[in-house]
């Protein structure tokens, strides 16, 4: 299916739907390359950025996307609004609509929160990360970045290394790449890469890094979070680095010139050896740029082209 009235996750987006977004994002990338990267496509529209979790990258990326399309963005950070006073998500979305917002971009710590906001059908909802469930625009920008590098997607292999269990990026990206014909391998400590991850995401699970990297055209390293260590899911940083940390030597197991992705921010020296980021294969900066183009495409398609919500 094509992009509908909302973008909550990638469940409803088939290969053609993803391709439509990527193609539109290419046009947006062209606009971003102009001296004055701005078009009036969404002039007069207001996009509410509703962030219940701290995030500078994603929020700024959406803000730039709004700006480039001529839309106004309004940030409602959890710490500065009635969100802390216990107003329910449903009421907050209603308020956003009442304030004249034409779309809501939602970042929320609970999985399924975007779906809940979307069920109100008051205005288009774009999921900017819900709990550990989905981060669809991140996945689309990853696919966009890789398609640009290789000129194709089908037949490639993506290996994702890290804490798959707690990663909405891994979930969405694995699904998006698999849908585009990319073979996906999931790798990391067994405590956070359980067997059910395979069938859930249409991927192969492999706990040995060298084996998982074999044949990989794209390697995605995930951010390792300290609190997972505290909860006993991950051993020490030293243990992680020794078994699943990526460095130039390990990466040699992958295809020559394999692209390296990271959703950021990077823990240098834990999941990635610092020198890797300076190699041409590292696409981290391209990912950031692609993020604005992809978010422009999604905003434009939902607000201007979509059947839209009531």
């Amino acid at each position: 299916m094509a992009l509908g009235a909302h973008l909550c996750d990638l469940d409803d987006l088939d290969a053609q739907g993803i391709t439509d977004v990527l193609d539109t994002a290419e046009s947006m990338a062209e606009i971003l390359a102009r001296p004055i990267p701005r078009v009036p496509a969404l002039r007069g529209r207001t996009v509410m950025l509703l962030f219940y979790e701290a995030s500078t990258r994603t929020r700024h990326s959406f803000e730039l996307a709004c700006k480039a399309l001529g839309a106004d963005s309004l940030s409602l950070a959890a710490a500065t609004s009635s969100v802390v006073k216990g107003e329910s998500l449903i009421d907050t979305v209603r308020t956003a609509r009442a304030l004249g917002a034409d779309a809501v971009v939602l970042r929320h710590p609970a999985s399924g929160a975007a779906r809940l906001a979307a069920t109100l059908n008051l205005l288009p909802v774009i999921n900017a990360g819900d709990g550990i469930h989905a981060h669809p625009t991140q996945a689309l920008l990853d696919v966009f970045t890789v398609r640009r590098r290789f000129g194709r997607l089908a037949g490639l292999q993506l290996t994702i290394v890290g804490d798959i269990l707690h990663s909405r990026v891994a979930r969405s990206s694995a699904l998006a790449f698999a849908r585009m014909g990319v073979k996906v391998v999931l790798c990391g400590p067994p405590t956070v890469v359980p067997p059910e991850a395979g069938p859930a995401l249409g991927a192969r699970v492999c706990h040995d890094l060298t084996e998982a990297l074999r044949g990989a055209d794209v390697v995605m390293a995930l951010r390792i979070q300290k609190e997972r260590q505290d909860r006993g899911l991950l051993p020490s940083a030293a243990e992680y680095r020794a078994l699943w940390g990526l460095d130039a030597g390990r990466l040699a197991a992958a295809c020559p010139g394999a692209v390296l992705l990271h959703p950021g921010p990077v823990n240098r020296g834990v999941e990635l050896a610092p020198e890797l980021l300076d190699r041409p294969e590292a696409a981290v900066d391209s990912q950031v740029r692609a993020g604005v183009a992809v978010r422009m495409a999604v905003l434009y398609m939902l607000l201007e082209q979509g059947a839209g919500a009531a």
């Binding site: 193609d23 539109t24 046009s27 947006m28 078009v39 434009y300 201007e304």
Partner: peptide
Amino acid sequence: TLYRDDLTTKHDRPRVGRT
């Protein structure tokens, strides 16, 4: 496409092309 002022009155979904 991104400069048109008559999109909302159209029912089709024109694709955004490259310049």
